[in-house]
Design a binder for these strands. Structure first.
Lengths: 181, 181
DNA sequence: CCACTTCCGTACCGAGGGTATGTAACTTCC
DNA sequence: GGAAGTTACATACCCTCGGTACGGAAGTGG
């Protein structure tokens, strides 16, 4: 599968350092085949990006569903996201290369259908339960999401990510606390 | 000046769509001259990135210095950062292309000497004044910084950025409020 | 004035994104 | 079941562009 091979190479070497030909070869086909299925290199990357978004959105939804109330579901979701950031393939594709390759516009459009959608739903639920302070929900989601992305990169860079996770998570949860009623 | 021309083109068309030759031509020299001063294309971009960081760090410091106390200086700094995000050149170079081209490691190294340094100093001052809750300061700065970057992109995308600024700023200040003692 | 460095231009190479074209296989429809 | 059209590749080629090699002019130091 082309997208599978692309995910592997894009995730390991980055977008710029990965040639279409290398991806095609890894998938056992030629460049022509790749260009038959995808308009250009960015389109192939986009498919990988969307796939990655689907994965994490599913993971978040699943993790949140196991929590008893909307607020703890929110906290659990944030922690799950941070854990996902320990995966270098995810970081490379979604956090580093994604915006530069696809542009902010397109990235947000995709994220609004996946990761940010889950976050927005979680916040809406919390608001409906009356545990979330009033304010602009979309902006709020965006800010929290940005903080989490940065937190993920920070904790991935630390020498002992597993050790750093609790302290970073604690700070993230403190920020979330600002939104509680 | 090569860096000046590079800033213009990188900021307008993005890193990938800008050739060294185009930058050199815009600066009135040839590609050879560019490669004499910079090891490669990324090194040229790095210079532009550092320059951009210097600008905003200076602006932040200056804005914060006009405030009477450490906490309002922090708030003012955040608002100034958001205003800076209205500049498309800044967004493109610092927020979009920077991480992908230089890598997270290098970006953070540079930011720690400029933007993040100002933020850290501001938070330290607030902590020294006893208006900031205990916690991990570096992680805290990183999270707030991430939230602000995302906020900047969000507000730049809105149809009427000047109108959106207050509501986004309000959400950002609410997050900051979580850090107050 | 002669060695040496700095600065910049010219010419070239090779990688890689993208296109044009050919052609099997497979589907559709009568 | 075969003609017509579509899908799914491969091959060959072009061209941009990052990077290198090299040459020469202009300053600099002794």
């Amino acid at each position: 599968m082309l997208v599978t091979a692309a995910r592997e190479l894009f995730g390991r070497d980055g977008y710029a350092a990965t040639s279409i030909e290398a991806v095609a070869a890894a998938a056992g086909v030629t460049k022509g085949a790749a260009y038959h299925h995808f308009r250009n290199k960015a389109a192939l990357f986009r498919s990988v990006f969307v796939e990655e978004q689907r994965r994490i959105a599913d993971a978040l939804r699943e993790a949140a569903a196991r929590e008893p109330d909307s607020w703890s579901a929110l906290l659990r979701g944030c922690r799950t996201f941070l854990e996902h950031c320990l995966n270098p393939v995810f970081r490379r594709i979604v956090l580093l290369d994604g915006p530069a390759v696809l542009g902010w516009e397109q990235v947000r459009e995709i994220e609004y259908a996946h990761t940010l959608r889950v976050l927005t739903e979680g916040m809406s639920a919390a608001a409906a339960d009356g545990v979330m302070a009033d304010g602009d929900l979309p902006a709020r989601c965006q800010l929290i999401f940005g903080a989490l992305c940065e937190a993920g990169m920070l904790l991935a860079r630390s020498d002992e990510p597993a050790k750093a996770l609790p302290v970073v998570a604690a700070e993230a949860e403190r920020l979330l606390g600002a939104l509680a009623r």
